[in-house]
């Protein structure tokens, strides 16, 4: 009878695999006290570039944003630390870039700016600069909870031909090296960031798309709700950490 012995073995293997999957599913969100900005993992020169406003290339965008902003007025200190935030008309959270475009279209009768355009990055950087040093403070309530949950699920979902989740690298392997690059904890404390690799300022959505493309997954389009859900989850995960915008990153 070759059949019967195989069954308990197979059952055992399945049990072991299920247990391992369950274990990996609850694996290691980073304890609050161990959270570190990507800033802490960078080289001294890159940190100095971020710290010195006359050397930080993101400040050029901030200045552009300031001159764009001055055509209309408003106080925006602390706003960037609270986004993504729930938008009643959309019935879902929108991020800072979407908020800026919404204001342009609704209040200024101006056209929406394209994603990653110089003007949208400049305005976002100008607004975010005014939250520098303030703690991230997104609002999670009955309205935003489902989107936070969706973002969390996406962060833990294996994707792409490489079959890798965000969490596998950024929760479990931060501080170690992917090729030559130190893996950060993925706290969005500096956006929009001037990334030396880009030779430009860029949004968090651009960074998320880069990561997805790296896993050979189909990247969501700019503005896709899935990207905003991820942004919300990442901001919640970094709740209380100080904004550094405009950050400089390798």
């Amino acid at each position: 009878m070759p059949g019967p012995p195989a069954l308990p073995l197979r059952r055992f293997v399945v049990t072991v695999i299920m247990a391992a999957i369950a274990a990996s599913a609850v694996a290691a969100e980073i304890p609050r006290a161990e959270r570190r900005s990507g800033y802490d993992l960078m080289g001294r020169e890159t940190r100095a570039m971020q710290d010195d406003d006359t050397a930080n290339p993101g400040m050029l965008f901030v200045l552009d944003g300031e001159s764009l902003w001055k055509k209309k007025t408003g106080a925006v200190k602390g706003v960037a630390a609270r986004y993504p935030a729930f938008d009643a008309r959309e019935g879902r959270p929108i991020d800072l870039e979407q908020r800026i475009n919404r204001c342009r279209v609704d209040r200024q009768q101006a056209p929406a700016l394209a994603w990653e355009s110089r003007d949208l990055l400049a305005l976002t950087a100008y607004v975010a600069r005014q939250s520098r040093g303030l703690p991230i403070d997104v609002t999670i309530d009955a309205r935003t909870q489902p989107f936070l949950d969706a973002g969390r699920a996406a962060f833990h979902r294996r994707q792409g031909q490489i079959n890798l989740s965000c969490s596998q690298c950024h929760d479990d392997l931060w501080g170690r090296k992917l090729a030559g690059s130190v893996i950060p904890q993925a706290h969005p404390t500096g956006y929009p960031i001037y990334r030396l690799e880009w030779q430009s300022l860029g949004s968090l959505q651009r960074r998320l798309r880069n990561c997805l493309i790296g896993t050979r997954a189909e990247a969501y389009e700019f503005g896709a709700p899935e990207l905003v859900d991820l942004e919300l989850y990442l901001m919640w995960r970094a709740q209380g950490m100080k904004l550094e915008s405009p950050g400089v990153r390798p």
Binding site: I17, A20, I21, A23, S24, A27, R157, R158, Q159, G160, Q161, I162, N163, L164, Q168, C169, L173, I213, R216, A217, E218, A219
Partner: peptide
């Protein structure tokens, strides 16, 4: 190791959102 980060190099099924 079911939790490995190493991809299955000859797998084409059971993957999510492949580009």
């Amino acid at each position: 190791n079911p939790a490995t980060i190493m991809p299955a190099y000859h797998q084409i099924e059971g993957l999510t959102r492949v580009a």
